[in-house]
Design a protein around this nucleic acid. Structure first.
Lengths: 210, 210
DNA sequence: GATGAATTAGAGCAAATACTCTAATTAGAT
DNA sequence: ATCTAATTAGAGTATTTGCTCTAATTCATC
Protein backbone atom coordinates (compact mmCIF):
# COMPACT_ATOMS: atom_id res chain seq x y z
CA UNK A 1 0.00 0.00 0.00
CA UNK A 2 1.32 3.40 -0.93
CA UNK A 3 2.02 6.03 1.66
CA UNK A 4 -0.77 8.11 0.22
CA UNK A 5 -3.26 5.35 0.89
CA UNK A 6 -1.82 4.69 4.32
CA UNK A 7 -2.27 8.36 5.20
CA UNK A 8 -5.89 8.29 4.08
CA UNK A 9 -6.64 5.08 5.92
CA UNK A 10 -5.06 6.16 9.17
CA UNK A 11 -6.71 9.58 8.98
CA UNK A 12 -10.10 7.95 8.62
CA UNK A 13 -9.47 5.57 11.50
CA UNK A 14 -8.16 8.25 13.82
CA UNK A 15 -10.95 10.66 13.07
CA UNK A 16 -13.62 8.00 13.30
CA UNK A 17 -12.43 6.85 16.68
CA UNK A 18 -11.35 10.07 18.33
CA UNK A 19 -13.06 12.80 16.36
CA UNK A 20 -12.09 14.93 13.42
CA UNK A 21 -9.68 16.93 15.55
CA UNK A 22 -7.56 13.84 16.17
CA UNK A 23 -6.37 13.73 12.59
CA UNK A 24 -3.47 16.10 13.11
CA UNK A 25 -0.60 15.98 10.67
CA UNK A 26 1.95 15.49 13.44
CA UNK A 27 0.10 12.51 14.78
CA UNK A 28 -0.44 10.96 11.39
CA UNK A 29 3.21 11.17 10.41
CA UNK A 30 4.17 10.02 13.90
CA UNK A 31 2.06 6.87 13.89
CA UNK A 32 2.91 6.11 10.30
CA UNK A 33 6.62 6.63 10.90
CA UNK A 34 6.93 8.91 7.91
CA UNK A 35 8.14 12.48 7.65
CA UNK A 36 5.96 15.59 7.44
CA UNK A 37 7.57 16.33 4.10
CA UNK A 38 6.25 13.05 2.84
CA UNK A 39 2.72 13.87 3.90
CA UNK A 40 2.92 17.27 2.25
CA UNK A 41 4.23 15.69 -0.90
CA UNK A 42 1.02 13.69 -1.22
CA UNK A 43 -1.40 16.32 0.08
CA UNK A 44 -1.18 20.05 -0.34
CA UNK A 45 -2.54 20.59 3.12
CA UNK A 46 -4.49 19.02 5.89
CA UNK A 47 -7.84 19.99 4.45
CA UNK A 48 -7.14 18.08 1.29
CA UNK A 49 -7.05 14.80 3.18
CA UNK A 50 -10.54 15.42 4.52
CA UNK A 51 -11.73 16.46 1.08
CA UNK A 52 -10.60 13.21 -0.47
CA UNK A 53 -12.37 11.24 2.25
CA UNK A 54 -15.51 13.33 1.79
CA UNK A 55 -15.48 12.71 -1.94
CA UNK A 56 -15.59 8.99 -1.25
CA UNK A 57 -18.58 9.45 1.04
CA UNK A 58 -20.23 11.72 -1.49
CA UNK A 59 -19.83 9.23 -4.29
CA UNK A 60 -21.13 6.32 -2.25
CA UNK A 61 -24.13 8.19 -0.93
CA UNK A 62 -25.18 9.20 -4.41
CA UNK A 63 -24.89 5.60 -5.46
CA UNK A 64 -27.04 4.43 -2.55
CA UNK A 65 -29.77 6.97 -3.22
CA UNK A 66 -29.91 6.26 -6.92
CA UNK A 67 -29.20 2.58 -7.36
CA UNK A 68 -31.10 1.14 -4.46
CA UNK A 69 -34.42 2.85 -4.90
CA UNK A 70 -35.71 2.52 -8.40
CA UNK A 71 -39.47 2.33 -9.09
CA UNK A 72 -41.46 0.52 -8.03
CA UNK A 73 -39.98 0.40 -4.55
CA UNK A 74 -40.42 -2.93 -2.85
CA UNK A 75 -40.40 -3.16 0.95
CA UNK A 76 -37.23 -5.26 0.81
CA UNK A 77 -35.40 -2.79 -1.38
CA UNK A 78 -36.56 0.05 0.77
CA UNK A 79 -35.24 -1.62 3.92
CA UNK A 80 -31.96 -2.42 2.22
CA UNK A 81 -31.67 1.21 1.22
CA UNK A 82 -32.07 2.36 4.81
CA UNK A 83 -29.57 -0.13 6.15
CA UNK A 84 -27.02 0.63 3.46
CA UNK A 85 -27.26 4.33 4.11
CA UNK A 86 -26.53 3.78 7.80
CA UNK A 87 -23.67 1.46 7.02
CA UNK A 88 -22.20 4.22 4.93
CA UNK A 89 -22.66 6.76 7.69
CA UNK A 90 -20.96 4.34 10.03
CA UNK A 91 -17.85 3.99 7.91
CA UNK A 92 -17.44 7.74 7.62
CA UNK A 93 -18.80 8.57 11.03
CA UNK A 94 -16.09 11.09 11.81
CA UNK A 95 -17.75 13.35 9.35
CA UNK A 96 -21.05 13.72 11.16
CA UNK A 97 -19.78 14.61 14.58
CA UNK A 98 -17.36 17.29 13.50
CA UNK A 99 -19.18 18.54 10.43
CA UNK A 100 -19.70 22.16 11.42
CA UNK A 101 -16.08 22.62 12.42
CA UNK A 102 -14.84 21.04 9.22
CA UNK A 103 -17.02 23.23 7.04
CA UNK A 104 -16.04 26.38 8.90
CA UNK A 105 -12.38 25.73 8.22
CA UNK A 106 -12.76 24.80 4.57
CA UNK A 107 -14.98 26.71 2.19
CA UNK A 108 -14.39 24.30 -0.65
CA UNK A 109 -15.57 21.39 1.44
CA UNK A 110 -18.54 23.44 2.64
CA UNK A 111 -19.68 24.09 -0.91
CA UNK A 112 -19.34 20.42 -1.84
CA UNK A 113 -21.23 19.31 1.24
CA UNK A 114 -24.07 21.74 0.63
CA UNK A 115 -24.45 20.56 -2.91
CA UNK A 116 -24.68 16.99 -1.67
CA UNK A 117 -27.19 17.95 0.98
CA UNK A 118 -29.47 19.80 -1.42
CA UNK A 119 -29.36 16.92 -3.83
CA UNK A 120 -29.88 14.36 -1.07
CA UNK A 121 -32.95 15.99 0.42
CA UNK A 122 -34.40 16.40 -3.05
CA UNK A 123 -33.76 12.74 -3.74
CA UNK A 124 -35.43 11.71 -0.49
CA UNK A 125 -38.44 13.75 -1.53
CA UNK A 126 -38.47 12.00 -4.88
CA UNK A 127 -38.37 8.60 -3.17
CA UNK A 128 -41.24 9.51 -0.87
CA UNK A 129 -43.15 10.74 -3.90
CA UNK A 130 -42.53 7.42 -5.58
CA UNK A 131 -43.94 5.58 -2.57
CA UNK A 132 -47.06 7.71 -2.87
CA UNK A 133 -47.32 7.00 -6.59
CA UNK A 134 -46.93 3.29 -5.94
CA UNK A 135 -49.91 3.49 -3.60
CA UNK A 136 -47.85 2.44 -0.60
CA UNK A 137 -47.99 5.76 1.18
CA UNK A 138 -50.51 8.51 1.82
CA UNK A 139 -49.35 12.03 1.04
CA UNK A 140 -48.36 13.84 4.25
CA UNK A 141 -50.77 16.67 4.94
CA UNK A 142 -48.58 18.85 7.18
CA UNK A 143 -47.44 22.27 6.11
CA UNK A 144 -44.35 21.02 4.36
CA UNK A 145 -45.84 17.82 2.93
CA UNK A 146 -43.33 15.50 1.29
CA UNK A 147 -40.56 18.05 1.62
CA UNK A 148 -40.93 18.15 5.38
CA UNK A 149 -40.80 14.38 5.66
CA UNK A 150 -37.71 14.30 3.46
CA UNK A 151 -36.04 16.94 5.58
CA UNK A 152 -36.80 15.15 8.83
CA UNK A 153 -35.45 11.96 7.29
CA UNK A 154 -32.24 13.73 6.36
CA UNK A 155 -31.94 15.25 9.83
CA UNK A 156 -32.37 11.95 11.64
CA UNK A 157 -30.02 10.15 9.29
CA UNK A 158 -27.36 12.82 9.63
CA UNK A 159 -27.60 12.91 13.38
CA UNK A 160 -28.21 9.38 14.53
CA UNK A 161 -24.53 8.55 14.79
CA UNK A 162 -23.76 11.88 16.33
CA UNK A 163 -26.46 11.22 18.88
CA UNK A 164 -24.81 7.93 19.81
CA UNK A 165 -21.39 9.55 19.99
CA UNK A 166 -22.73 12.31 22.20
CA UNK A 167 -24.64 9.91 24.41
CA UNK A 168 -21.48 7.82 24.50
CA UNK A 169 -21.99 5.55 27.47
CA UNK A 170 -20.13 2.90 25.54
CA UNK A 171 -18.17 2.64 22.33
CA UNK A 172 -20.47 2.90 19.35
CA UNK A 173 -20.71 -0.19 17.20
CA UNK A 174 -21.87 -1.12 13.77
CA UNK A 175 -24.85 -2.92 15.25
CA UNK A 176 -26.25 0.36 16.51
CA UNK A 177 -26.97 1.23 12.91
CA UNK A 178 -29.97 -1.10 12.84
CA UNK A 179 -31.53 0.91 15.66
CA UNK A 180 -30.89 4.03 13.64
CA UNK A 181 -32.64 2.58 10.62
CA UNK A 182 -35.58 1.61 12.79
CA UNK A 183 -35.69 5.04 14.37
CA UNK A 184 -35.60 6.65 10.97
CA UNK A 185 -38.34 4.38 9.75
CA UNK A 186 -40.69 5.79 12.36
CA UNK A 187 -40.59 9.12 10.55
CA UNK A 188 -42.20 7.63 7.49
CA UNK A 189 -44.21 4.89 9.18
CA UNK A 190 -47.39 6.86 9.99
CA UNK A 191 -47.90 7.52 6.29
CA UNK A 192 -47.16 4.04 5.03
CA UNK A 193 -49.61 1.41 3.95
CA UNK A 194 -49.83 -1.10 6.85
CA UNK A 195 -48.90 -4.07 4.68
CA UNK A 196 -45.90 -2.26 3.22
CA UNK A 197 -44.86 -1.12 6.67
CA UNK A 198 -45.03 -4.61 8.17
CA UNK A 199 -43.09 -6.07 5.31
CA UNK A 200 -40.42 -3.37 5.36
CA UNK A 201 -40.04 -3.62 9.12
CA UNK A 202 -39.52 -7.38 8.86
CA UNK A 203 -36.85 -6.86 6.22
CA UNK A 204 -35.26 -4.21 8.38
CA UNK A 205 -34.96 -6.64 11.29
CA UNK A 206 -33.78 -9.53 9.16
CA UNK A 207 -31.10 -7.83 7.13
CA UNK A 208 -29.36 -5.94 9.86
CA UNK A 209 -26.20 -8.06 10.13
CA UNK A 210 -23.16 -6.64 8.40
CA UNK B 1 -20.94 44.91 34.88
CA UNK B 2 -18.20 42.87 36.52
CA UNK B 3 -15.37 41.40 34.50
CA UNK B 4 -16.68 37.95 35.28
CA UNK B 5 -19.99 38.77 33.62
CA UNK B 6 -18.27 40.48 30.72
CA UNK B 7 -16.19 37.36 30.13
CA UNK B 8 -19.30 35.17 30.11
CA UNK B 9 -21.21 37.48 27.83
CA UNK B 10 -18.42 37.85 25.30
CA UNK B 11 -17.71 34.13 25.35
CA UNK B 12 -21.33 33.41 24.54
CA UNK B 13 -21.39 35.96 21.75
CA UNK B 14 -18.15 34.81 20.19
CA UNK B 15 -19.05 31.15 20.33
CA UNK B 16 -22.56 31.74 19.04
CA UNK B 17 -21.34 33.70 16.08
CA UNK B 18 -18.16 31.91 15.14
CA UNK B 19 -18.41 28.52 16.78
CA UNK B 20 -17.29 27.10 20.08
CA UNK B 21 -13.66 27.13 18.98
CA UNK B 22 -13.71 30.92 18.70
CA UNK B 23 -13.97 31.36 22.46
CA UNK B 24 -10.23 31.19 23.08
CA UNK B 25 -8.88 32.77 26.21
CA UNK B 26 -6.41 34.89 24.25
CA UNK B 27 -9.14 36.33 22.12
CA UNK B 28 -11.46 36.95 25.03
CA UNK B 29 -8.88 38.84 27.05
CA UNK B 30 -7.80 40.63 23.89
CA UNK B 31 -11.23 41.93 22.97
CA UNK B 32 -12.10 42.71 26.56
CA UNK B 33 -8.84 44.52 27.10
CA UNK B 34 -8.13 42.58 30.28
CA UNK B 35 -5.20 40.40 31.25
CA UNK B 36 -5.09 36.60 31.15
CA UNK B 37 -4.42 36.67 34.87
CA UNK B 38 -7.72 38.40 35.34
CA UNK B 39 -9.60 35.77 33.39
CA UNK B 40 -7.96 33.00 35.36
CA UNK B 41 -8.81 34.73 38.57
CA UNK B 42 -12.49 34.38 37.75
CA UNK B 43 -12.39 31.00 36.06
CA UNK B 44 -10.14 28.10 36.90
CA UNK B 45 -9.79 27.18 33.26
CA UNK B 46 -11.38 27.56 29.89
CA UNK B 47 -13.76 24.66 30.38
CA UNK B 48 -15.30 26.31 33.40
CA UNK B 49 -16.60 29.18 31.28
CA UNK B 50 -18.45 26.75 29.05
CA UNK B 51 -19.77 24.89 32.06
CA UNK B 52 -21.28 28.00 33.55
CA UNK B 53 -22.97 28.79 30.24
CA UNK B 54 -24.23 25.24 29.97
CA UNK B 55 -25.68 25.40 33.46
CA UNK B 56 -27.75 28.38 32.39
CA UNK B 57 -29.05 26.47 29.38
CA UNK B 58 -29.70 23.43 31.53
CA UNK B 59 -31.70 25.40 34.06
CA UNK B 60 -33.78 27.17 31.44
CA UNK B 61 -34.55 24.02 29.48
CA UNK B 62 -35.77 22.24 32.58
CA UNK B 63 -37.98 25.22 33.31
CA UNK B 64 -39.43 25.18 29.80
CA UNK B 65 -40.19 21.48 29.89
CA UNK B 66 -41.80 21.60 33.29
CA UNK B 67 -43.55 24.93 33.53
CA UNK B 68 -44.98 25.25 30.07
CA UNK B 69 -46.60 21.89 29.67
CA UNK B 70 -48.80 21.07 32.62
CA UNK B 71 -51.94 18.93 32.13
CA UNK B 72 -54.19 19.33 30.37
CA UNK B 73 -52.13 20.62 27.47
CA UNK B 74 -53.94 23.22 25.42
CA UNK B 75 -52.91 23.77 21.79
CA UNK B 76 -51.82 27.30 22.63
CA UNK B 77 -49.63 26.18 25.51
CA UNK B 78 -48.20 23.43 23.41
CA UNK B 79 -47.27 25.86 20.63
CA UNK B 80 -45.77 28.26 23.14
CA UNK B 81 -43.70 25.41 24.54
CA UNK B 82 -42.26 24.60 21.13
CA UNK B 83 -41.46 28.20 20.34
CA UNK B 84 -39.89 28.84 23.71
CA UNK B 85 -37.69 25.77 23.40
CA UNK B 86 -36.37 27.01 20.06
CA UNK B 87 -35.83 30.48 21.41
CA UNK B 88 -33.70 28.92 24.11
CA UNK B 89 -31.74 26.88 21.59
CA UNK B 90 -31.17 30.05 19.62
CA UNK B 91 -29.70 31.95 22.53
CA UNK B 92 -27.25 29.14 23.29
CA UNK B 93 -26.79 28.02 19.74
CA UNK B 94 -23.02 27.66 20.04
CA UNK B 95 -23.68 24.62 22.12
CA UNK B 96 -25.44 22.59 19.47
CA UNK B 97 -22.94 22.97 16.68
CA UNK B 98 -19.87 22.12 18.68
CA UNK B 99 -21.39 19.74 21.19
CA UNK B 100 -19.36 16.64 20.46
CA UNK B 101 -16.07 18.50 20.62
CA UNK B 102 -17.02 20.17 23.87
CA UNK B 103 -18.02 16.90 25.51
CA UNK B 104 -14.87 15.15 24.35
CA UNK B 105 -12.70 17.76 26.00
CA UNK B 106 -14.61 17.91 29.26
CA UNK B 107 -15.86 14.85 31.08
CA UNK B 108 -17.68 16.85 33.70
CA UNK B 109 -19.66 18.70 31.07
CA UNK B 110 -20.31 15.42 29.28
CA UNK B 111 -21.85 13.89 32.38
CA UNK B 112 -24.03 16.92 33.00
CA UNK B 113 -25.19 17.01 29.40
CA UNK B 114 -26.07 13.34 29.37
CA UNK B 115 -28.11 13.72 32.53
CA UNK B 116 -30.01 16.55 30.92
CA UNK B 117 -30.55 14.58 27.74
CA UNK B 118 -31.88 11.52 29.54
CA UNK B 119 -34.21 13.66 31.57
CA UNK B 120 -35.30 15.69 28.54
CA UNK B 121 -36.21 12.71 26.39
CA UNK B 122 -38.08 11.20 29.30
CA UNK B 123 -39.97 14.43 29.79
CA UNK B 124 -40.87 14.61 26.10
CA UNK B 125 -42.23 11.09 26.40
CA UNK B 126 -44.28 12.15 29.39
CA UNK B 127 -45.69 15.12 27.48
CA UNK B 128 -46.65 12.92 24.53
CA UNK B 129 -48.25 10.52 26.97
CA UNK B 130 -50.25 13.38 28.42
CA UNK B 131 -51.49 14.33 24.96
CA UNK B 132 -52.68 10.76 24.54
CA UNK B 133 -54.38 10.81 27.93
CA UNK B 134 -56.08 14.08 27.06
CA UNK B 135 -57.52 12.41 24.00
CA UNK B 136 -55.71 14.75 21.63
CA UNK B 137 -53.33 12.19 20.24
CA UNK B 138 -53.43 8.55 19.14
CA UNK B 139 -50.73 6.34 20.55
CA UNK B 140 -47.94 5.77 17.98
CA UNK B 141 -47.91 2.16 16.87
CA UNK B 142 -44.31 1.92 15.64
CA UNK B 143 -41.75 -0.28 17.32
CA UNK B 144 -40.69 2.40 19.76
CA UNK B 145 -44.09 3.94 20.39
CA UNK B 146 -44.05 7.09 22.46
CA UNK B 147 -40.38 6.70 23.19
CA UNK B 148 -39.49 6.79 19.53
CA UNK B 149 -41.53 9.91 18.94
CA UNK B 150 -39.90 11.57 21.93
CA UNK B 151 -36.46 10.64 20.67
CA UNK B 152 -37.13 11.95 17.18
CA UNK B 153 -38.44 15.16 18.72
CA UNK B 154 -35.25 15.53 20.72
CA UNK B 155 -33.12 14.84 17.67
CA UNK B 156 -34.84 17.40 15.50
CA UNK B 157 -34.81 19.99 18.25
CA UNK B 158 -31.15 19.44 18.97
CA UNK B 159 -30.17 19.61 15.34
CA UNK B 160 -32.37 22.19 13.72
CA UNK B 161 -30.02 25.04 14.48
CA UNK B 162 -27.02 22.98 13.57
CA UNK B 163 -28.68 22.18 10.27
CA UNK B 164 -29.10 25.88 9.57
CA UNK B 165 -25.52 26.59 10.57
CA UNK B 166 -24.25 23.81 8.35
CA UNK B 167 -26.46 24.83 5.44
CA UNK B 168 -25.27 28.38 6.10
CA UNK B 169 -26.12 30.19 2.89
CA UNK B 170 -26.82 33.24 4.99
CA UNK B 171 -26.48 34.29 8.60
CA UNK B 172 -28.93 32.44 10.77
CA UNK B 173 -31.58 34.56 12.45
CA UNK B 174 -34.01 34.30 15.26
CA UNK B 175 -36.88 34.13 12.80
CA UNK B 176 -35.61 30.80 11.52
CA UNK B 177 -36.71 29.31 14.81
CA UNK B 178 -40.35 29.42 13.77
CA UNK B 179 -39.52 27.17 10.83
CA UNK B 180 -37.82 24.83 13.26
CA UNK B 181 -40.87 24.67 15.47
CA UNK B 182 -43.00 23.94 12.44
CA UNK B 183 -40.59 21.28 11.23
CA UNK B 184 -40.58 19.69 14.66
CA UNK B 185 -44.34 19.79 14.79
CA UNK B 186 -44.51 17.54 11.75
CA UNK B 187 -43.01 14.75 13.85
CA UNK B 188 -46.03 14.70 16.12
CA UNK B 189 -48.64 15.89 13.65
CA UNK B 190 -49.63 12.52 12.14
CA UNK B 191 -50.72 11.31 15.56
CA UNK B 192 -52.60 14.43 16.64
CA UNK B 193 -56.32 15.00 16.69
CA UNK B 194 -57.08 17.16 13.62
CA UNK B 195 -58.77 19.88 15.64
CA UNK B 196 -55.88 20.03 18.11
CA UNK B 197 -53.41 20.09 15.25
CA UNK B 198 -55.14 22.92 13.43
CA UNK B 199 -55.37 24.97 16.57
CA UNK B 200 -51.76 24.38 17.56
CA UNK B 201 -50.50 25.18 14.08
CA UNK B 202 -52.41 28.44 14.11
CA UNK B 203 -50.89 29.36 17.45
CA UNK B 204 -47.48 28.37 16.13
CA UNK B 205 -47.82 30.78 13.21
CA UNK B 206 -49.28 33.58 15.27
CA UNK B 207 -46.87 33.59 18.16
CA UNK B 208 -43.64 33.35 16.26
CA UNK B 209 -42.41 36.93 16.74
CA UNK B 210 -39.88 37.36 19.48
C1' DG C 1 -6.68 56.87 56.56
C1' DA C 2 -4.83 52.36 57.55
C1' DT C 3 -5.33 47.51 56.72
C1' DG C 4 -6.45 43.33 54.46
C1' DA C 5 -8.89 41.23 50.78
C1' DA C 6 -10.40 41.34 46.15
C1' DT C 7 -9.16 42.25 41.69
C1' DT C 8 -6.18 43.23 37.76
C1' DA C 9 -1.90 43.70 34.96
C1' DG C 10 1.52 41.75 32.23
C1' DA C 11 5.52 39.23 31.22
C1' DG C 12 6.42 34.86 29.96
C1' DC C 13 6.33 29.58 29.47
C1' DA C 14 5.42 24.97 27.56
C1' DA C 15 3.16 22.40 24.33
C1' DA C 16 0.92 21.63 20.04
C1' DT C 17 0.24 22.38 15.22
C1' DA C 18 0.43 23.28 10.30
C1' DC C 19 3.69 23.78 7.17
C1' DT C 20 8.47 24.74 4.49
C1' DC C 21 12.81 23.73 2.53
C1' DT C 22 16.67 21.24 1.20
C1' DA C 23 18.94 17.14 0.79
C1' DA C 24 18.90 12.28 0.32
C1' DT C 25 17.09 8.06 -1.54
C1' DT C 26 14.40 5.01 -4.53
C1' DA C 27 12.19 3.51 -8.82
C1' DG C 28 11.53 3.26 -13.63
C1' DA C 29 12.62 3.85 -18.30
C1' DT C 30 16.33 3.83 -21.86
C1' DA D 1 24.57 1.56 -16.22
C1' DT D 2 22.63 5.96 -16.33
C1' DC D 3 19.58 9.53 -16.19
C1' DT D 4 15.29 11.48 -14.64
C1' DA D 5 11.37 11.83 -11.94
C1' DA D 6 8.99 10.29 -7.98
C1' DT D 7 9.26 9.81 -3.29
C1' DT D 8 10.96 10.35 1.40
C1' DA D 9 13.63 12.21 5.41
C1' DG D 10 14.27 15.45 8.82
C1' DA D 11 15.48 19.64 10.72
C1' DG D 12 13.43 23.78 11.46
C1' DT D 13 9.88 27.89 11.52
C1' DA D 14 5.96 30.63 12.75
C1' DT D 15 1.88 30.82 15.15
C1' DT D 16 -1.53 29.78 18.44
C1' DT D 17 -3.16 28.36 22.78
C1' DG D 18 -3.97 27.52 27.59
C1' DC D 19 -2.08 28.73 31.56
C1' DT D 20 1.28 30.46 35.60
C1' DC D 21 3.40 33.63 38.63
C1' DT D 22 4.45 37.83 40.77
C1' DA D 23 3.67 42.42 41.40
C1' DA D 24 0.66 46.22 41.29
C1' DT D 25 -3.70 48.41 42.14
C1' DT D 26 -8.43 49.05 43.68
C1' DC D 27 -12.06 48.42 47.17
C1' DA D 28 -14.44 47.82 51.38
C1' DT D 29 -14.39 48.28 56.22
C1' DC D 30 -13.09 49.76 60.59
Amino acid sequence: MSNRERILELSLTLMNEEGAAAGTTTRIVGELGISPGNLYYHFGNREEIVRVLFDELDKELRAVLVEDVGPPISPARFAAFYLRSFDLAWRYRFFFGGLLGLLRRDDVLAARYRALQDWGIGELERIAGQLVKDGNMTRPGGRGGLRSVALNTWLIWMNWIRFLQISGKRAIEHEDMADGASQLFDILAPYLDPAFERSARRALARDLPR
